[in-house]
């Protein structure tokens, strides 16, 4: 891939940018993993899980920059996941092919707590406008003025008031004791 998407673009959660990476390195990863006695479906699962770990690490800020390239980082995660897979199946591996665990900061993906699971459910029950404004602010990283333009609000104060109302609504839907 000639031009990898920038970390700034990836931080917005742009699905197109992640798709570009997925398609760009898919065949190379399958090529590498096919050296081992492992099924094609499993390789694809590992590759997809690695992409999701990349997404999570970028979006949560665990990765602030890629020291070399996205490809190196993605393959680092993928190789560790493959290694785990092969070890679980008690298959022989060439250790040199696989990075040390420490070279990649995080390959374990997060599990939601029961409180977060409840929050996720309640979030789905919010109206479209609320879901949209909260996603733009908390996930995609748009500032108040940018949300005003992107979602056609009259002015910045309207955005602030609407965001605050939506958050309050969510708080009320949850057991208020959970959040103070």
């Amino acid at each position: 891939m000639k031009n990898e998407p920038s970390i700034t673009t990836l931080r917005t959660g742009d699905p197109v940018a992640y798709q570009v990476i997925y398609e760009g390195y898919r065949d190379a990863f399958i090529g590498f993993a096919s050296k081992y006695d492992i099924q094609q479906d499993t390789i694809l699962d590992v590759y997809q899980e690695s992409m999701l770990a990349l997404y999570e690490n970028v979006m949560s800020g665990k990765v602030k920059d890629f020291s070399s390239s996205i490809k190196t980082y993605l393959f680092g995660i993928g190789k560790l996941k493959l290694y785990e897979q092969l070890r679980a199946q008690k298959k022989m591996v060439l250790v040199d092919d696989f990075p040390e665990q420490g070279e990649i900061e995080e390959i374990e993906t997060m599990e939601l707590t029961s409180q977060q699971k409840a929050l996720k459910k309640h979030f789905q029950n919010l109206g479209d406008r609320c879901r949209n404004i909260l996603e733009l602010f908390y996930l995609n990283g748009l500032r108040i003025k940018e949300i005003m333009i992107a979602a056609n609000y009259e002015n910045e104060n309207t955005v602030k008031a609407q965001k605050s109302r939506c958050l309050k609504q969510l708080k009320t839907m949850m057991n208020p004791q959970n959040y103070g």
Partner: peptide, 28 residues
Amino acid sequence: ATFELEKDLNTVLIDTGKEHLKQQFVDF
């Protein structure tokens, strides 16, 4: 209290984003 809610919301939204992305890869 609100900050804790916002942190959880951020985690939940990332989790939902992963689900959408997974579906996108499967569809592809």
